[in-house]
Design a protein around this nucleic acid. Structure first.
Lengths: 203, 203
DNA sequence: TTTATTTGCTAACGCCTGTTAGCATCTTAT
DNA sequence: ATAAGATGCTAACAGGCGTTAGCAAATAAA
């Protein structure tokens, strides 16, 4: 086979493994499971990949790259308010998730099985990603756009809501990923209550 | 040893296993790991427990019971608004989480390794639990207390935020579990924005 | 003091794990 | 036509898995 087809074969392994890892978890998924799923022998997998962990590593870091790329693109756009920027971040994150919910779930649930130095690397990246959100919150609070609630608390709440999306999102549903992101950011930023505010609250 | 002491020995196993399952995941935690942690041989564990899965089962269903007990207690109290009831639910849920974050994480992450019929049983219970929240949302929307946003969407967002708490909560921090719950429900219900609402919404 | 129970041990079981070695076949490029 | 590479096979490895059998010592109840 040509080089291009080999890549697609390797990609097929990664896709199948993603599904497997998502359903049973990384540790409970065996190489024989994976081999079975693609119709070859377990030993034959090693013509295409170096190790089981290599697959996990590729999934995790490819997703990390996608999340970063999505919010990096936003930083170049002009922005009127921090609320607008936060919404764009949320929508971008949602779109990455919706684009591959299975890989996202593996990314979220299985990274702890990475070995060093990849483990620390991953933790670092996630920390930097969270910081990007925190900076927006801080700026918004400084501009009196947001209430002075602990930024880390808010960001973790936002990200946890986002990271639950792959559990229920189905492509082709009523809401597009963008609409989901918008709805979600409106809910988290504006709340779900009807009626007027009773003035500026402190937490 | 007396019967009372036996129970505490079994309890020690469960506590140690909880910590182990939380850190490495259920599948990646071996009985030899657990035995090592409590200072006995792996085979000796079976003088106290029937199987590895029994431990997981106990953790998962004990937590499920606690979550249900917490919101059941609330339904007997008089309630002025759905927002108030929702807040009490959220605070109650947060308090159960804070009481044992490790067990909560196992409850959230490892239930999929339960075998039938326990697996289906668990899924059913969780579904019933979510419904309790959905009913509050529905009632609140009917009373025009909440905006007419898809209830399932809102509930999943709330619960995902709650279920992320064990990842960062440390006992003895600045906020008590109750304060965390209050803060969280205020944020989710009222939003994080300063200032007054615009427009047509009434109450 | 006898009896029953609890708690632990060693040894072992059958099975599953990720991975390697060595070889065959089939496809593509020269 | 030939060489190179891709793809797959069988066989096997060393080690880990959950669990059981059978026995010994300690402890508690009678």
């Amino acid at each position: 086979m040509s080089k291009q087809e080999k890549i697609s074969r390797k990609r097929q392994l990664e896709l199948t493994a993603t599904q497997l890892f998502k359903e049973k978890g990384y540790t409970a998924s065996s190489m024989r499971d994976l081999a079975n799923e693609v119709g070859i022998e377990a030993a034959s997998l090693y013509s295409h990949i170096k190790s089981k962990e290599e697959i996990l590593r590729n999934i995790c870091f490819r997703m990390a790259d996608e999340f970063f790329a999505a919010i990096n693109a936003i930083d170049n756009e002009p922005m009127n308010s921090m609320a607008e920027k936060l919404e764009k971040y949320i929508v971008a994150h949602t779109e990455v998730i919706a684009h591959d919910t299975a890989a996202t779930l593996v990314f979220i649930n299985e990274w702890k099985h990475l070995s060093e130095p990849h483990y620390s690397n991953f933790v670092d990246q996630r920390h930097r990603y969270e910081k990007r959100f925190i900076e927006i919150l801080k700026a918004g609070i400084k501009r009196k756009e947001f209430l002075p609630i602990d930024e880390k608390f808010v960001v973790l709440t936002i990200l946890s809501s986002l990271n639950w999306i792959p559990h229920w999102y189905k492509p082709g549903g009523k809401m597009s990923p963008e609409e989901i992101g918008r709805q979600l950011s409106r809910m988290l930023i504006d709340g779900i209550k009807t009626g007027h505010r009773t003035g500026t609250r402190q937490h």
